[in-house]
Amino acid sequence: MARDWQAVADAINTRLAERGMTQRALAEASGVSVATLRKLQKAEPADRGKPVLMALSVALGWAPNYLQTLSDGAQAPSDSATALRDEVAALRADLSEVQQRLAKVEAAQRES
Rank of each mutant, 00 (worst) to 15 (best):
A89H: 08
V58Y: 04
G31C: 03
A93Q: 15
L53Y: 07
A89I: 09
S78N: 05
V98H: 06
L84V: 14
R38V: 08
N65E: 08
G61K: 12
A107R: 05
D10F: 08
R101P: 01
L102F: 10
V88A: 04
S96L: 05
T14Q: 14
E28V: 03
V105S: 01
R38G: 07
D72L: 15
K50Y: 06
L37T: 11
R15P: 07
R92N: 14
N13G: 12
D4V: 04
R24S: 09
A89S: 03
L102N: 13
A83E: 13
M54C: 10
L91C: 04
T36H: 09
N13Q: 12
L37C: 11
A59T: 12
Q75L: 14
E97I: 00
S30F: 10
T22R: 13
A7S: 13
T14G: 00
V34Q: 13
A76F: 06
L102E: 11
R15D: 00
V98D: 03
V88F: 09
L91Y: 04
K39Q: 15
A43T: 05
P51T: 02
A17V: 03
L26H: 10
Q100D: 10
G73M: 08
P77R: 00
A17H: 07
D47A: 12
D47F: 06
S80V: 13
S80A: 04
E44Y: 07
E18S: 08
T69N: 09
M1A: 12
P64W: 00
W5I: 04
P64M: 02
R92Y: 06
A63M: 06
D94Y: 06
L70T: 01
Y66F: 15
E111G: 02
L70W: 04
P45R: 03
L95N: 12
R19S: 05
E28K: 13
V8T: 07
L26D: 08
L26R: 04
T69M: 03
A17D: 00
P77T: 05
A7I: 03
L37Q: 09
T69E: 02
R85A: 14
V88W: 00
A108R: 12
Q99K: 15
R101Y: 06
D10M: 02
L40M: 11
A2N: 04
V52R: 00
E28N: 13
P45D: 09
V88C: 07
L95V: 03
T69R: 12
E87L: 04
L26Y: 10
V98T: 07
R38K: 10
P77K: 09
A81I: 10
L102Q: 13
L56W: 01
A108F: 02
R19Q: 14
L37D: 03
K42A: 15
L95R: 14
S96G: 05
A11E: 04
Q41N: 14
S112N: 12
L16Y: 04
A11I: 02
A27V: 13
R92W: 07
M21E: 08
I12P: 04
S57C: 04
P64S: 11
Q41A: 07
D10I: 03
R38T: 14
L60D: 07
V8I: 01
L67K: 12
D79F: 05
W5N: 11
V52E: 09
S30T: 11
T69A: 05
P64L: 07
S71Q: 13
L84H: 09
T14E: 11
Q99N: 14
A27H: 12
A107V: 01
R38N: 14
